[in-house]
Amino acid sequence: MTVESRRLDGNAAAGRLADVFAFDATVARTRCGGCGTTAPLGAHHVYADAPGMVVRCLVCEAVVLRIVRTPGHTWLDMSGTAALDIPDGDPS
């Protein structure tokens, strides 16, 4: 099985991101720090079988976000995210 065929969509990161964010991060729109593409995090590409989870831009494959769980810690790198647009939750 190729690396590309094992690639997941961004929703695969939902559980890990829910450990960190109080909102549903998969619907938050991110602007890629590499190419400027804006898309919901859930639309990006996720490489989940490495030592950590790597979310990459669906257009340019630049790293948008990385998250690693180590004993007692969660490590989050968002240096590839130029902006994050978080919709308000459903008021109903």
Binding site: V3, E4, R6, R7, D49, A50, V54, R56, E61, V63
Partner: peptide, 9 residues
């Protein structure tokens, strides 16, 4: 021989 990748090949 597992293949672990953090991105495209």
């Amino acid at each position: 021989f597992p293949v672990l990748s953090a991105g495209p090949t």
